[in-house]
């Protein structure tokens, strides 16, 4: 029943130099939960997804998607998908 929700959390978190522990404390989750979300082993609730997005000051669709994300280099340099 549960559908895979793709996310860019690990990349954004690394880019912003935020530890899992800090993010977890900020959004009221366990640090392991952040790890499970990053590896796609747990789909966050809308509430948690919005809290994470708010923490990074990004729209939720920048972090979570039902479709796999394109590589960032493709998006930045405009390469078309094969």
């Amino acid at each position: 029943m549960s559908e895979q929700v793709h996310n860019r959390l690990a990349m954004v978190r690394a880019e912003r130099k935020v530890s899992r522990q800090s993010l977890a404390e900020a959004v009221g989750a366990h640090y392991q939960t952040i790890g499970y979300i990053e590896r796609g082993q747990y789909n966050p609730s809308l509430d948690l997804a919005l809290k994470i997005s708010k923490f990074f000051n990004l729209p939720v669709e920048a972090l979570f998607s039902l479709e796999p994300f394109r590589p960032l280099t493709d998006e930045v340099y405009g390469r078309n998908q094969p």
């Binding site: 366990h30 392991q32 939960t33 747990y42 509430d47 948690l48």
Partner: peptide, 16 residues
Amino acid sequence: TRGLLELREHVLDERQ
């Protein structure tokens, strides 16, 4: 289990 059964419900996050 990181206290899955020992911690009170409001201490756990949604996944737990």
